[in-house]
Simulated assay, not measured.
Amino acid sequence: MDDLRERAARPEDLSRFVVERLNAGDVEGLVALYEPDAVLALPNGRVATGSEEIRQAYEHLVADRPTFTPGRQQPTLRNGDLALTSVRLADGGVTVEVARRQPDSTWLWVIDQPSLLG
């Protein structure tokens, strides 16, 4: 992971970082928000598993340089080293993610469902 990028001190930081890095087109920074064997839900019921598939998904997503707007962070539910995070999006959708505390006390996503209907 690039040591110059800010790391998530709290699970809620991941949602802010993903929007910042999407808008910057920073694919490697996006991949750095996930554990190496994480899963990312994709449209049409597909799933990207692991860093390489997640990288390919984000390369495709940012190719046309869309603009992403931050949503409203919902309360985080924690149990030990796991956290359930969620963001309510402006279009009424919701994201749901599971983050895990890393040995250095930072957080990374292990499961990411970015587009549930509200």
Rank of each mutant, 00 (worst) to 15 (best):
M1A: 11
M1F: 06
M1N: 06
D3Q: 14
D3R: 15
L4A: 15
L4R: 09
R5Y: 02
E6M: 08
R7H: 06
A8N: 04
A8R: 03
A8V: 00
A9P: 09
R10K: 15
P11I: 05
E12P: 09
E12I: 13
D13Q: 07
L14S: 05
S15F: 14
F17H: 07
F17R: 00
F17M: 14
V18S: 13
V18E: 14
V18R: 10
V19Y: 15
V19A: 06
E20T: 15
E20F: 12
E20K: 12
L22W: 07
N23H: 07
N23K: 08
A24G: 12
A24N: 05
G25M: 09
G29L: 00
G29Y: 01
L30Y: 06
L30C: 09
L33Q: 01
Y34R: 03
E35A: 09
P36V: 07
D37F: 00
A38F: 00
A38Q: 01
V39H: 09
V39T: 10
A41P: 05
A41S: 12
L42D: 11
N44F: 13
N44K: 14
N44M: 15
V47H: 00
A48E: 03
A48D: 01
T49H: 11
G50Q: 02
S51P: 01
S51H: 03
S51W: 05
E52G: 06
E53G: 06
I54A: 02
I54V: 06
R55V: 04
R55K: 05
Q56N: 14
A57V: 02
Y58I: 00
E59T: 09
E59A: 10
H60N: 13
L61N: 09
V62K: 00
V62N: 00
A63W: 03
A63T: 10
A63P: 05
A63Y: 01
D64T: 12
P66A: 01
F68H: 08
T69I: 15
P70K: 07
G71D: 05
R72A: 15
R72N: 15
Q73N: 12
T76W: 08
L77K: 14
N79H: 10
G80C: 08
G80H: 13
G80L: 06
D81H: 10
L82E: 05
T85A: 11
T85N: 12
S86D: 07
S86R: 04
S86M: 01
V87E: 10
V87C: 11
V87P: 09
R88T: 10
L89E: 08
L89C: 02
A90Y: 08
A90R: 10
A90G: 10
D91N: 12
D91H: 01
G92V: 06
G93N: 08
V94M: 07
V94F: 09
V96Q: 14
E97M: 10
R101W: 09
R101H: 04
Q102S: 03
Q102K: 00
S105E: 13
T106R: 01
W107G: 06
W107C: 02
I111D: 01
I111S: 03
D112Q: 02
P114E: 01
L116P: 01
L116F: 04
G118D: 05
